[in-house]
Each structure stands twice: as structure tokens, then as C-alpha cells.
Amino acid sequence: MPEQLKGSLDVGIASFRRNTAARSAAQTTPVGRRYTGLFFALPAIIFTTIFFILPLLMTAFMSLHQWPLLGQSRFIGLENYVNMTRDSQFWNSLWFTTRYTLLVTPAIFILAFVLALLVNLPLRLIGTFRTIYFLPAVIGLGTSSLLWVWLLNDRVGPINGLLNQLGLMERPVIWLADTNAVMPAIIVSIVWKTAGFTMILLLAGMQAIPTELYEVAKVDGANYWQRMRFIMLPLMRRTFALALVLSVIGSYLAFDQFYIMTAGGPQNQTISVVYWIYKNSFTNFNLGYGAALSIILLLILVILSAVQLYILRDDTTY
């Protein structure tokens, strides 16, 4: 199976090279077919314009308005943004989401890296294990959150049942309603759901490193850990950067797990930023304020990904 993965990567790289060649060939397209390509691309461009670019511009526009769901909207300048500074739940949500991201990202990464190392070993049946670890990544986050509501239930859930059997628990923990237990519980559920996804990304990065490099190092007497430390890790910077950006963005946009597993509780402690946007827009119907929050979220994410890509930028060629 790893061969297959590598194969698909090779095909990808080859197609990229040919692609560059095709681009120069495309320059010679006859004038009569000047608009043929546009004709093909037009439906996709129209969709993107109506259902993405337009709403994006509208978000910015709406954020400058008092905008109820029904009735007249009113231009209020930056008032929504000013109100945000006094909105304590917004700051709580921002801090909570940041804390969640800082905790869940390393958890996912450490497990995913170990999994990738394991499934990269040349052993029989290792492809089966890779499939198993990846399996939770294909089910929906909403579905997996509901699954964990049951797993973590204090009365009927197997996790409390097992901990009880093993004598590890004095009294049942109500995981999702306990201020101290709720964060670890949700993190475990998310790590279970997403570690396999990150594993595949890291695995592809590992397999893109030419084997010769390891062999040369081996001849020079480097052991397994030295080869990992001095060859694999530095050459995987780009992969790490990509996986990190995807993971941080995903965590910052978390909604399903909090909406489904805790409904923001206990005591409004697990209201993520997207959840707060949802509440303002679709529970309080204050669409203008929701739009302003969306713009701030968008800026935070763009800055975060730019910073991460810059820190982990890679000039290495091999």
C-alpha cells in the first residue's frame, strides 16, 4: 500500500512537470479558439462569484450595518467592531478557541507522527492498520460528535463503564458537564477523529524523501534516531507546515463538536468563535454583528496561516 501512495505522488509530480510543458504549448492556441477555454471555465467562475465572492463582499458590507433578519438595515459605521471590544463572551470565545487549538494540535500531531512512522514500516499487513487508523477521518464530524456523546455518557457510555470495571474511577465522571473534564474529553474525541488524516499527510511527506539519503547516512554510521533527526525531520518541514496550517485552521473553525457535545456548556465555557457567530446571527438574528465577527475571524485565520507558512517555509531542494 505505501507503494501505491508513493505511486500517486510520483504521478502527481510528473503531471506537474508536464503541466509546465503544457502551459507553453497552450500559448500557440489558434486565435479562433480564443474564448473556447472561457466557455468551459465559465460555469465554475459563475458559481464561485455568486456563492463565494459575492457573499464575501456582502459580509464586509453587512458588518458596517445594524442588520436584523427582517426589517430595514441601517448603516452604523464601525459600531459593530467597537461593540466587540466590550463583548466579554466574544473574548471568552476567542480565548477558549485559542486554548483549544493550542491543546488539540500537538495532541493530533504527536499521535499522527507515531502512526505515520508505524505504517511506514515495511511489515506485512501494515496497509490494513493504515486503513483502520484512517477510518474515523471519513465519517462526519457531526456524526462522530454524536458517537462520542454516547461514549462519554456517564450512565450508558462504555468509557465510564470500562474505567469503572478497571477500578480507575471512584464515582462516575459526567465528562461533558464537568468544567475540568470537558476539554480533555472533547480533545480525545477530536484526536480520534482527525489523527488518521494528519497521519496520511505526514506519511506522504515521509515517502517523498529519497531512500538514498538514508542509505548514505547509514553508511556513515548514523543510527535510526539520528537519521530521523537529521534527515527526515528537516526534509519534512513543508509537510509539517501544510499539516499544521490545516490542523490549526480546522481547530479555530470548530463548531460541530461544541454545538453537539456540550451545546456551549458547562456555563457557556465551550462556546467557540464560530459558535458565537452562529448564536448572534441565527439565534439573536443580529446579522450585522455576526458579519463583523466573521470578518475578524477571517483576518485572524489569514494572519495565522501566513505566519505559520513563513516560519516553516522551506528553501531546501533535494
Binding site: A22, R33, L38, T48, L56, T59, I249, F255, S305
Partner: peptide
């Protein structure tokens, strides 16, 4: 396979939406 006016701009336009979280629109 084709060259057409605004080709690169429209391609980037479609790809760039990847960087904008859909939750914000």
C-alpha cells in the same frame, strides 16, 4: 488546454476561495 483572457486571474479566484473559511460567509 486553452488560453483565454483573464485565465490566470479566474483560476486564482477559484483556488483562493480555499483560504477563506466558508463559515465566515
Amino acid at each position: 488546454r486553452f488560453n483565454f483572457p483573464m485565465k490566470n486571474v479566474s483560476f486564482l479566484l477559484i483556488l483562493a476561495t480555499l483560504m477563506i473559511p466558508f463559515q465566515s460567509i
